[in-house]
């Protein structure tokens, strides 16, 4: 940024070329557009999944039984709860309560961690029984991804499963990053009733991450 703007650094960003109200609405518009692109991004995967589920109904049903629906359900609950705490964080920021904002966002990020740990446990279990690409075949594994016996439909199901859940997990990590950035600002008492854009944007993004999981969970775990 050029020297002439440095005077405004302590204030909200972009203040040099648009007023705070427009900046807030602009950010919100930008965020919603971005969320639309995210939905389209996952839309491709949903479409592919729908087509192949229709074609290979039985095999997909069979494959889905190797997922632990209880783990999925725990994660669903964790994410829904974290969305709720994110809303509380936004509400606190809108009231200019930096302390509460900080606290609620911390809870939200912690939920993100729990989600990732559960996901890790699921993945490592899959790897253990051989339902994971890149794992060398071994004797105690139930499956072997690269062997000829491994069914193509299984490969397709788990390929899509890993593609979707890893992409989603990446979104969780990005979301946690954004929220961490937002909560550090709360720590520095940056928010007021006039300025709480980062919290709101972070929370919007987090809701999307949550929403996508709410679609993924029944699609992948509850194929029946």
């Amino acid at each position: 940024m050029s020297s002439s703007n440095e005077a405004t650094v302590s204030g909200p960003p972009h203040a040099h070329h648009w007023d705070p109200v427009t900046a807030y609405h602009g950010s919100k518009l930008g965020m919603w557009l971005f969320l639309a692109t995210e939905i389209l991004l996952f839309g491709v995967l949903f479409t592919a999944f729908a087509i192949f589920r229709y074609l290979y109904m039985e095999e997909f049903h069979h494959a889905s039984q190797y997922l632990d629906w209880k783990m999925g359900a725990i994660n669903t609950a964790v994410l829904i709860f974290s969305s709720f705490t994110a809303v509380l964080g936004v509400d606190a920021a809108q009231h200019g309560d930096n302390k509460k904002t900080f606290r609620w966002l911390c809870v939200t990020v912690a939920c993100g961690f729990i989600f990732l740990i559960v996901k890790y446990l699921e993945y490592s279990h899959k790897a253990h029984i051989g339902l994971f690409p890149f794992i060398e075949c071994n004797d105690h594994a139930q499956f072997c991804w690269d062997s000829v016996e491994f069914k193509n439909e299984f490969k397709m199901y788990f390929g899509l499963y890993y593609c979707m859940t890893m992409l989603h997990a990446l979104h969780v990590i990005i979301g946690m990053g954004i929220l961490t950035w937002a909560l550090l600002k709360a720590k520095k008492n940056r928010y007021s009733t006039d300025y709480y854009t980062p919290v709101e944007m972070g929370a919007l993004y987090w809701h999307l991450v949550d929403l996508i999981w709410i679609y993924l969970f029944p699609l992948l775990y509850l194929v029946d």
């Binding site: 890149f134 397709m156 390929g159 593609c163």
Partner: peptide
């Protein structure tokens, strides 16, 4: 439009790397 092709190309890469077969 761009997210769609982005994801399609990711699927293509997955296909090559993991042998998913879509």
């Amino acid at each position: 439009a761009t997210p769609v092709v982005g994801m399609t190309l990711v699927l293509l890469i997955m296909e090559r790397v993991m042998g998913v077969g879509i």
